[in-house]
Each structure stands twice: as structure tokens, then as C-alpha cells.
Design a binder for these strands. Structure first.
Length: 458
RNA sequence: GCCCCCAUGGUGUAGCGGUUAGCACGCGAGCCUUUCACGCUCGUAGGGAGAGUUCGAGUCUCUCUGGGGGUGCCA
């Protein structure tokens, strides 16, 4: 029997990197084991769920290349099955109707106190304003066996009778989970650690329903922020597709996500998805929470960026540049894009590097101007010589380099020094892509205009 | 409060009773070099604390400490 796993997000907000990591680990496991990767839309909270959020999740999964098998199960359409299970629980004495309000519970146990079992034996029948509570066995305990963290035992005495059906017949998450996992014949439940403490409830419901053959559990370590708290959409940058929009490649994101709580056995952190599938073992997943470190993500992304062919890089970077510069020129861009390839960590950094080629007005960075031009008395001489020599020079990289080299020698300057004022005059900054390649691409006319403009500005 | 989980450099991790505690990110230095990058080389920094088991402990046990998650008529 091939393993069957599921990713079951709740479509109540933008797709989260934590969710993406959970999906990825499920996917890697399924692909590694020749299993089946299923999707379940957990939209039982009708007020908070929407199809638009679901679309965002699907977009994210497609972007990462996480393809799923079989049709997506929509949990809200499984309501009858959930309620039938609740009926069976009540009939079997494993659950009961309860009409306590939060206020009444607080009045009896104090604010924040748990449920005290008040309605356990009142024999209440169904009503729209009543809930169904699971009757937690009085004694004993439930042990969760977990591939990643061995086992965790929970005494029943520490678990209050919990709600399985809300007023109006809305099934709760745990009930729906148990029923649908059984329906989809899920063999391995791979999810975030935040679900570990609800797992005994899951198991108790299974027992009460008489279900046999528990799935294997694997609770993944949480993804946390720099303060070591679980990533939250309120405080942290967690939207998966925001990273795409900021110039990260899907391959890089997928590779980085895999590294959070897991490491390839061969030690090669940056690796192909095929190698990840080959090496993925659930028992190799670590137990400690992992910090989502964007700096390391940047490193991984830069690596993938450099691995692209020049044409692929240009194609990937083009939309970022096109919308950021004054006058986009496709041919010029194709020519200069490779100059940026080893100089950026994300595609979003490409425009600032190349913008000087797609504008009429150079933006001078004042610190650069000061450092390369204003502070050096020889800078005006270099610029004057360049303005003269560039009129006649052959307009290609090597010739421009030789010409500039000669100008430097005349003033006792190495090329590194001599090129600085010219670079600032033409690009506005002391750092940027290789100068002579840039000049060749910019053209003689624009270059001369900028050098002369700088001369006047001194 | 109660329950549960976790603990190797700043970060992600390797190790699975005997290692000079490895790798990667970051950071620092050097080389390369038309700036900046890339690349290469070197360096920086680590098993929370205390007991115990053992000839020997990051690795096993216990206590404590710290962090986190859960404790909903959210998922």
C-alpha cells in the first residue's frame, strides 16, 4: 500500500511560508516513497474561509512545483459525514449535547478555566444553539507516537471535554480532520508542531468511532522569527508569493524551505529537487524550531541566479527592470543583463544596478561624487582627457579599456583609480557593473554627453 | 495556572559513547581584479547549568534553567 499524505490548509489568509514548508515536506515524503500527495481544503470556518485565499494557496504550490494527486477535497462539502460521525459519538455515549455559554463556564470555573463537564449527564437533546462535546475518558492517558519526536503522553485528566460540533451544526476542526483523514485513507499525518497537543483528541475520537489502524504522525518543528516565536502573519514577513514578487526564484525558495528542519544526508545543502526527493527521510527531520533567515535565503537565491543561463537570467529579470526604469530598451537590456547576474541576490536588485542605462538624467549619489570626483584634484583632468579620447576611440570594451588605461598612465594612475571619475560621471555611483562593457552598451554619444556634463558640474 | 515539545557557534545543521566537534550562512582578512560582485584561501565563534551512569558523554539518565507550542463554540 503506497503511503497517502495530505496537505490541508485552511484558506483564511495569504499562503504562509510555514504552510509551504509543511506542504513541501509532505510532497517530498510522498514522492520519495512512491506515495500519494493529496490536498484538502479545510474551509469549515465559513466566516473566515474564501475561495480567493484557496487560489492563492494553489498558486503558491504551483509556483514551488508541488503537484498534487487526485481531486481536492473540500471539507465544507463533507459536512454530512462529519455530523453523522458526531451522531455516532453521541449514540455511543462518547459525546453529549451541551448548552453552557462561555459566561456560565467562567462563572463556575473562573475566567480562562476549562469546561467542567456540567452537561455530561444532563441528557440534553439536539438544538440549534447547543454544541456537541466529546466526553474525554475519566482515567488513563493517550500516547501519540511520532516519527520525528518518538512519543508524547497526555493524561486524560488534563484534557477538558471539547466541542466537536458548534451551534447550528458546524463541525469542528478535529472531528472533520479525523473523519476526512479516514475517508481519504491517510496513512501519514505530517503537519506543524502546533498540532501536537490536539493529537490526543484526534486519537480519542478515532477510538470512540471504532476506527482501526492509526496514521503515522510526524510533527514538524515550527518556523520561528528572530525572537524565536512562531511566524505570524501580523508581525512577520510570511507571505510566500511576496518573496516571488521580490525577486526570489521558486527553486531557491523550495531548496531553502527544505533546509528548515532537514538536511540532505550527503551534506550538499544546495541541491536539485530530485536529490532532495532521493534523500528525504521523515526520521531525519529535526525537532528544534527553525528560524526563517532571509539572509540565507538570499544566499541560496543568488546561487540559483548564477546558475541560470544568460538568456534565462535576462528573461527572469526583465519584468523587474521594465517596470522600474524610465525608458526600457529590450535590445540594450538583453546585452547588459549578464553584467548584473553575479551582482545581485534577488531580481529586484537588478534595476538599481542598470537603471543608468535606461534614463536621460543620471542620478548622482553625492557620496560617490565626493569620493571619486570632488575630493581628487586630478579627476577633472581624467574626465577632460576621456572626453577628448572617447571621440575617436573604437567603441568596444577592450579599446575603451586601453584608452582609459593610457589616460591613467599619463597622470600616474592605475586603472582602478582612473576609471572612478568616469564611472561616477556615467553611472552616478562608484559601484556598478563593469565600466567599459557599460560604456560600449551606452554608446559614444550618451557617454560623451555624461562626461561633459560632469565636467561642467565640477 | 495546567499540559506538551524543544535545547550544538549569531543563524540553519552534521554527529548517533572515544573526532583537533564537520559543513553552510553571516562576519573579518587576503588573493584575483576596471569599481562592485563572482570565485578561491585563511580566519572568527559552539554542545544552557548541575548531578549521575561509564575507563571515557554533545551523544544515555535525572534535576534545574531558558525558549516555544497548546490550553477556543479558530485551524
Amino acid at each position: 500500500m503506497p503511503p497517502r499524505v495530505r496537505f490541508s490548509p485552511s484558506p483564511t489568509g495569504p499562503f504562509h511560508v510555514g504552510g509551504a514548508r509543511t506542504a513541501l515536506f509532505n510532497w517530498l515524503f510522498a514522492r520519495r516513497e512512491g506515495g500519494v500527495f493529496l490536498l484538502r481544503n479545510e474551509d469549515t470556518d465559513r466566516e473566515r474561509s474564501s475561495d480567493e485565499w484557496l487560489e492563492g494557496i494553489l498558486d503558491g504550490l504551483r509556483w514551488l512545483g508541488l503537484d498534487w494527486d487526485e481531486d481536492i477535497v473540500r471539507q465544507s462539502e463533507r459536512r454530512d459525514a462529519h455530523l453523522a460521525a458526531a451522531d455516532r459519538l453521541v449514540e455511543g455515549g462518547h459525546a453529549y449535547w451541551c448548552d453552557c455559554t462561555r459566561e456560565q463556564i467562567d462563572a463556575r470555573k473562573g475566567p480562562g478555566g476549562g469546561y467542567d463537564g456540567f452537561c455530561r449527564d444532563r441528557g440534553l437533546g439536539p438544538a440549534d444553539d447547543r454544541v456537541v462535546r466529546f466526553r474525554v475518558p475519566d482515567g488513563g492517558s493517550t500516547t501519540v507516537v511520532d516519527v520525528i519526536r518518538e512519543s508524547a503522553t497526555f493524561d486524560h485528566a488534563t484534557i477538558d471535554d471539547f466541542v466537536v460540533v458548534r451551534p447550528g451544526g458546524a463541525p469542528m476542526f478535529v472531528l472533520a480532520n479525523v473523519v476526512d483523514d479516514d475517508f481519504q485513507r491517510i496513512t501519514h499525518v505530517i503537519r506543524g508542531e502546533e498540532h501536537l497537543s490536539t493529537t490526543p483528541k484526534y486519537l480519542m475520537i478515532r477510538r470512540a468511532l471504532g476506527l482501526e489502524g492509526d496514521p503515522v504522525f510526524a510533527h514538524l518543528p515550527l518556523l520561528v522569527n528572530e525572537k524565536r516565536q512562531k511566524l505570524s502573519k501580523r508581525r512577520d514577513k510570511v507571505q510566500l508569493l511576496q518573496y516571488r514578487d521580490e525577486g526570489y526564484l521558486a527553486e531557491a525558495m523550495r531548496n531553502y524551505l527544505a533546509l528548515l528542519g532537514w538536511a540532505p544526508r550527503d551534506g550538499e545543502e544546495i541541491t536539485t529537487v530530485e536529490r532532495m526527493v532521493e534523500q528525504f527521510r521523515l526520521e531525519d527531520v529535526s525537532r528544534a524550531p527553525a528560524f526563517f533567515d532571509e539572509r540565507k535565503l538570499q544566499h541560496v537565491n543568488a546561487h540559483y541566479l548564477r546558475e541560470l543561463s544568460e538568456a534565462e537570467f535576462a528573461a527572469a529579470a526583465r519584468p523587474f527592470v521594465e517596470r522600474a526604469v524610465e525608458r526600457f530598451d529590450p535590445e540594450l537590456f538583453a546585452q547588459v543583463a549578464p553584467l548584473a547576474q553575479t551582482r545581485v541576490k534577488t531580481l529586484a536588485e537588478v534595476p538599481e544596478l542598470l537603471a543608468f542605462l535606461f534614463t536621460d538624467a543620471v542620478q548622482f549619489d553625492e557620496a560617490s561624487w565626493e569620493k571619486a570626483i570632488a575630493r581628487n584634484e586630478w579627476s577633472a583632468d581624467v574626465l577632460r582627457d576621456a572626453a577628448a579620447a572617447y571621440v575617436e576611440a573604437a567603441w568596444e570594451t577592450e579599446a575603451l579599456k586601453d584608452t582609459t588605461l593610457a589616460i591613467g598612465e599619463r597622470h600616474g594612475l592605475k586603472l582602478g583609480k582612473a576609471q572612478a571619475p568616469i564611472r561616477v560621471a556615467v553611472t552616478g555611483r562608484t559601484v556598478g557593473p563593469p565600466l567599459f562593457e557599460s560604456l560600449e552598451a551606452l554608446g559614444r554619444e550618451a557617454t560623451l554627453a555624461r562626461v561633459n556634463e560632469a565636467l561642467e558640474r565640477i
